[in-house]
Simulated scan of single mutants.
Amino acid sequence: MLLDPIDAPAETTAEDLHLAYLEELAAVVSDVGVDEAADRTGIPADTLAALVAGEQPQLVLDDAAAILALTDDWPDADVVMLEIRDSIMLGMSSAVLDVDALERALDDGLDAKTIQQMIEGRRPLPLATYAAIALTIRRENDYA
Rank of each mutant, 00 (worst) to 15 (best):
L2W: 00
D4N: 11
D4K: 02
P5E: 10
I6V: 15
D7Q: 12
P9V: 09
E11Q: 10
E11F: 13
E15R: 13
H18L: 04
L19M: 12
A20E: 10
Y21A: 00
L22W: 01
L22E: 03
A26Y: 03
A27C: 06
V28E: 00
G33R: 01
G33L: 08
V34K: 00
A37P: 04
A37H: 01
D39P: 02
D39S: 11
D39C: 07
D39I: 07
R40G: 03
T41C: 02
P44A: 14
A45Q: 06
A45T: 06
A45L: 06
A45M: 08
D46P: 08
T47N: 06
T47F: 02
L48S: 05
L48I: 06
A49Q: 09
A50D: 13
A50V: 09
L51S: 04
G54F: 11
G54T: 11
Q56G: 02
P57G: 11
P57Q: 07
P57L: 05
P57H: 05
Q58M: 10
Q58I: 13
V60S: 12
L61Q: 05
D62K: 04
D63Q: 07
A65H: 01
A65F: 03
A65M: 02
A66W: 01
A69Q: 04
L70Q: 04
T71F: 03
D72H: 07
D72P: 03
D72S: 09
D73G: 03
W74T: 00
P75F: 02
A77S: 13
D78N: 07
V79L: 12
V80K: 00
M81R: 14
L82G: 14
R85P: 12
D86V: 07
M89W: 12
L90D: 15
G91D: 08
M92Y: 11
A95R: 08
A95K: 03
L97P: 08
D98W: 05
V99H: 08
V99W: 02
D100E: 14
A101S: 15
E103C: 07
E103T: 05
E103S: 09
A105C: 05
D107N: 12
D108R: 14
G109P: 09
G109I: 07
L110P: 06
L110E: 14
D111G: 11
D111L: 05
A112K: 10
K113W: 02
T114M: 11
T114L: 13
M118E: 13
M118N: 05
I119G: 05
I119V: 12
G121S: 09
R122D: 15
R122E: 15
P124D: 15
P124N: 14
L125W: 07
P126H: 04
P126N: 09
L127F: 09
T129Y: 06
T129C: 10
T129D: 14
A132T: 02
A132V: 05
A134T: 05
T136A: 15
I137K: 03
I137S: 01
I137G: 01
I137P: 01
N141H: 09
A144H: 14
